[in-house]
Design a protein around this nucleic acid. Structure first.
Lengths: 345, 345
DNA sequence: TTGTATGCGTTATCAG
DNA sequence: CTGATAACGCATACAA
């Protein structure tokens, strides 16, 4: 692992100046003979340009960071899957940050933008605090936020529409004739928990269905917790005929418990998840789920950032990704088997 | 987004030399008064050190790359989940590469190591060609390979033991009394396809079960393809009583088709997957799967690389991660319901 | 066309 | 303890 060759090494070997070497390496007009000598020397030495020195000079790193709360969360991974190829195609490397849902870590990432080790940042914050907004205003590189920021914040922004998403689910269940539609939510002090809970209430109101707080059960965004929440709910409200779960994991827990309790899905109880992760299609019965467009949001964010990196200044943009209800066997009127057939096709 | 302040800016403002600024910023012994002035100036200016310049000087980027075939593959994501926190804790950033299963792209990543934008690399190659080995031998930074390399290759190496893994599965099925154990595999020209297929044959031989090529079906490593393969298999060998699937996706496809065909799982046909991805626990019936230790391999690789980065020279190391059979309802003798209960606990 | 010299922002050596 | 100054590897304005 000896020290690698530099343009100096090449210059010596080829008997030319480093300026000529640089010119040849960058394809600038040069005499054929010089080109030949330089290329030969570079080849023999196994020269590879030093990206760091290049960045220092050019002030561009060709790196972009993606900061998310948790590498383990399938919704973020869906974003990652879309972001990666877009950046790669444009010649950017992707630097990954997992902030472990710690706000201080997010601020840290924003701060580290000043270190200039990346040209831009895509961030999906757990919540948006005052500190976030201050850092954003002072950011020394372009940032795209996935998630809602206050109106007027001067940042490119990609959001989901969870309000409409919840409405799609509730309307669907209502259309199937369900009238005892429960919501199994995560903690209300999280952004998704709060907004989805509120949207549920609104959707019911618009349908003229009275709000019954007995039908709301708070747990956490994991399978086992979701299962426990559903068990409690069933004990309290035995006549529930539909469950709107705040994410797919909760919904899987719901399926577990319903099965154990001998309730048929969807005949006795229909179940809807949210996020439409891979798990939804894998479960049995396959899970109807509200896609909040994780993948689309990731793609849009990457594209916005690239435009900003290449295009220069323009007004901040807001992209809202519409939700989509993906109907599968857990709510379908038809038999589970045929629904599954369709899904696989 | 004006140009950020540098140590020069600070030096002017504080009325000292850039050398003093650097010393203060790095905590080297300095007079109190100087420290105060520099810190004050730095604070007012909102100074953040430039990581690129630092790297150029120190020859360390504090970045590590992870190159995998496909960001979409849950097995790689399991590695990623373990690698990320280990690197983060050690102060390294993670640069992600997805090579899209293109060998040329992998070589490219290896080549780009010479650009020195990272201090080291963890790579999980699809296959290991001569070109790989040449590049590895000439690599200008430490590399850890996840996956088997030829004996004698001077690289830190973390491997799974798919041979034993397959054996665990076959023995398990045999112990359950199954004698018509089929293998649903992916393409044989892939590394996993080849090794798993071979291991299946060996495991049967050691059990004294005659090898029946009718029981081997080749498809691809995806759900729909797996389903199709199983359908063909069922048509050809109706009396099959167990399926060993080369990954979890194939196994999910198998469950689909078996259900559609009215075969009960596990009563009529037992099903085993491989990789033990999240999907295995999500499916119904929950899928027995052979964990090849994706998570453990990722963790081990990250630790090996860190040791190498911090520790300096030592002989290349080989870590082999043992497989583990995770028994769930798709093979369990007990009722599916009770097995599911246990799984959730 | 080519070479010399300078700067990108830091760190580190060496006199003072 | 502090200040000039020389690298780190590359790109480029300017002079030859």
């Amino acid at each position: 692992m000896a020290d690698g060759p530099t343009i100096n090494t090449i210059a010596e070997r080829a008997g030319v100046s480093i300026a000529s070497v640089s010119r040849v390496l960058n394809g600038l007009p040069t005499r054929q003979e010089t080109v030949r000598k330089v290329m030969a020397a570079a080849d023999e030495l196994g020269y590879v340009r030093n990206a760091v020195a290049r960045s220092l000079k050019s002030r561009r790193t060709h790196q972009v960071a993606f900061a998310m709360a948790d590498v383990g969360n399938p919704a973020y991974l869906a974003m990652l899957r879309q972001i990666q190829p877009v950046l790669k195609a444009a010649g950017y490397r992707l630097v990954l940050h997992s902030t472990d849902a710690v706000v201080a870590d997010e601020i840290d990432v924003l701060h580290s933008l000043g270190e200039r080790y990346v040209d831009g940042l895509i961030m999906s914050p757990l919540r948006v605090t005052e500190a976030h907004l201050e850092m954003l205003a002072a950011a020394r590189a372009p940032v795209v936020i996935i998630g809602s920021v206050p109106d007027g914040t001067r940042v490119d922004n990609v959001r989901a529409d969870s309000r409409t998403g919840v409405r799609l689910a509730v309307d669907h269940l209502y259309a199937l004739g369900r009238r005892r539609i429960a919501m199994v939510n995560g903690p209300l002090d999280t952004v998704p928990g709060a907004s989805r809970g509120e949207a549920y209430r609104e959707a019911l109101r618009d349908l003229g269905v009275p709000y019954d707080e007995n039908l709301v059960q708070i747990g956490d965004f994991y399978r086992a917790e979701g299962g426990r929440a559903v068990a409690e709910l069933l004990a309290r409200v035995p006549d529930v005929d539909a469950l709107l779960c705040a994410n797919d994991l909760i919904a899987l827990g719901a399926l577990d418990v319903l099965r154990a309790a001998g309730r048929r899905v969807p005949d006795d109880v229909a179940v809807v998840g949210m996020d439409d992760t891979d798990l939804a299609a894998a479960s049995w019965p396959a899970l109807t789920s509200v896609s909040l467009g994780s993948a689309e949001r990731g793609k849009a964010a990457a594209e916005l950032l690239l435009e900003r990196l290449q295009g220069g200044d323009r007004e901040p943009r807001l992209v809202t990704v519409p939700p989509r209800l993906v109907i599968r066997a857990s709510t379908a009127g038809e038999s589970a088997e045929s629904a599954d057939e369709r899904e696989r096709a």
